[in-house]
C-alpha cells in the first residue's frame, strides 16, 4: 500500500487529499484513478502535472513496489 497525495487544485477536483492505494505501476495507478473519477483522471494528465515518488520527481512510468508515497503536483505557483 502506498500513500497517494494530491496537491493544489487536484485535491479540489478529487475531493480528497490523501488515500492508501495499492498499484504495481504509476500507469496502472493513473488508470485506476481515472476509472473512478474521470474529472480527476483528466486533471492528472493535464499540462504541467508532475509526479514525485518518495519526494523525488519521476518522468514517465515507474514501478511503485518500493514507493511509500506518490505525490501528484500541479504547476507550482511559487510563494
Amino acid at each position: 500500500m502506498a500513500r497517494v497525495l494530491l496537491f493544489g487544485r487536484l485535491s479540489d477536483v478529487a475531493g480528497w487529499r490523501l488515500r492508501e492505494i495499492d498499484s504495481p505501476l504509476l500507469s496502472t495507478l493513473l488508470t485506476t484513478l481515472a476509472e473512478e473519477d474521470a474529472a480527476l483522471g483528466e486533471a492528472l494528465s493535464g499540462p504541467g502535472v508532475q509526479v514525485a515518488l518518495d519526494q523525488v520527481i519521476v518522468r514517465g512510468d515507474a514501478p511503485l513496489n518500493t514507493a511509500t508515497e506518490i505525490a501528484f503536483l500541479p504547476p507550482m505557483s511559487g510563494g
Binding site: 496537491f7 493544489g8 487544485r9 479540489d12 500541479p74 507550482m76 505557483s77 511559487g78 510563494g79
Partner: peptide, 21 residues
C-alpha cells in the same frame, strides 16, 4: 515567487481561485 513548490489559493468575497505564477 516563481518556482518554489507552493500552491496558492486566493479567497475572495465570491469564492476561491488557484493562482498561477
Amino acid at each position: 515567487k516563481s518556482k518554489a513548490p507552493f500552491w496558492k489559493k486566493e479567497h475572495g468575497p465570491n469564492g476561491a481561485r488557484w493562482v498561477e505564477p
